[in-house]
Design a protein around this nucleic acid. Structure first.
Lengths: 233, 233
DNA sequence: CAATATAGCAACCGATCGGTCGGAAGCTAA
DNA sequence: TTAGCTTCCGACCGATCGGTTGCTATATTG
């Protein structure tokens, strides 16, 4: 009806498309996303939508990019202000929990990357590659943070960063499932409880309080801090 | 070309359809599965395929049922022969690892239920309900086994079964991702290493060897068994 | 103001989607 | 042998898929 054309206006439209695309894809999957549905939701024509990207695959990749920014802004950036090491690692984990909460509203259908990873983990092509790349970057960032914490003596010596990353990824994938599939109100607490064990400080290091947004005070059992000296990570 | 019709023959055809359907859906998702593709793969007509189920949704539900049997046969049934408690729990976990291995060939695209759970975790309808139901049954079965082990004194008293289930589910979801998305050859070992910590026996109980298919002998670090007395799972 | 570039639309393309229908082929029961 | 039931096929349905093609209307550039 009313073709706008300024460069700035065009970019805003593009962003609107990507935002909506992310919302749809987080529920229906990147493949379940259709141009027609997207156009209807936005009150545009299919050609108008597709004109910004050329192909559906390009749109999917752009959505992945946009989702990546959202994740980064919600989890990494706020934690990046904290000093590196265990403190920052704990911040990351706490922001990560918040990011996955339904109320956070980043993605109506749960973590976009979990969905995309499972959706494309058995296929080949540019989208799978992009998912693998982003996921690898995140794993690497986590591993670096862990390595730093170990070298600083905040985590037990002998801790295997990749092993800890492996367990963290699993933990958060499980958290996402508990929230989305079961709407489990205890999921966050369970995650924090697992974290106090996974991220228990090295025996000799500083008592470790402060820093992180408090890993819950008045919980049940679980001594948490104190742990057998040899029980690495 | 050649319509067969005996009741037994019909059932065999139905099973063939479901088998193929499971294979496709584990890669493309239950939604990505199409009648046309299925018919082509099986050398049948679309009507011939759909005639056995009526609707695509019924076919999807039947596939979920079939996948459930495969999982049960691969993980639960072999472990059910072991005496209940920690020993059986360890068996379950070991068979569960085998089941997820690419070479196992149960599902070419990785665990059918992980895929289905993520695919439908943000939707409503009979399929999501079925996924939730099956997943809940499995969680309950695990929790029961854990509860038994705790009461038998094989796991530390104060262990929260649901918490341990939560962490196990996450661990195996992570394993599935590591295998499918990263083809990580160390994923199985990492899972076993995490398991030795999660399923560490209660301090006072029997030394716990034997029983399970050996949770790896000559590994690196990680004392494993010994753990602070208070550090409940 | 004129020329160019582009955002967006309506209409359309072939392909495929889930699903229906009538009939052909063969099993089973009377 | 015949009647009825079931399996399966080929052809077809309307809807939707991703994508293309002119075209209009505006913004920008000169």
């Amino acid at each position: 009806m009313s073709p706008r054309k300024s460069a700035a206006e065009s970019r805003r439209t593009r962003d609107r498309i990507i935002d909506r695309s992310i919302a749809i894809a987080s529920v229906e999957g990147l493949d379940g996303l259709t141009i027609g549905r997207l156009a209807t939701d936005l009150g545009m024509s299919k050609a108008g939508v597709l004109g910004h990207f050329g192909t559906k695959e390009a749109l999917q990749l752009a959505s992945l990019d946009g989702a990546s920014s959202i994740f980064s802004r919600a989890v990494w950036e706020p934690a990046a202000r904290t000093a590196p090491g265990l403190a920052r690692l704990r911040d990351i984990c706490e922001y990560w929990i918040t990011y996955l909460e339904r109320e956070h509203g980043a993605f109506p259908g749960g973590c976009f990357f979990t969905t995309a990873a499972v959706e494309f983990d058995a296929r080949v092509g540019p989208i799978r590659d992009a998912v693998v790349r982003r996921s690898t970057l995140w794993r690497r960032r986590l591993a670096n943070e862990i390595r730093y914490a170990v070298e600083a003596g905040e985590l037990p010596p002998g801790t295997d960063p990749d092993q800890l990353v492996f367990e963290l990824i699993g933990l958060y994938t499980g958290l996402n499932q508990a929230i989305q599939l079961f709407a489990d109100p205890q999921a966050q607490d369970r995650t924090r409880r697992a974290l106090t064990r996974l991220l228990a400080p090295a025996p000799g290091s500083a008592p470790a309080p402060g820093a992180a947004p408090a890993p819950e005070p008045g919980a049940v059992q679980e001594p948490g801090a104190a742990q057998g000296p040899g029980a690495a990570r």
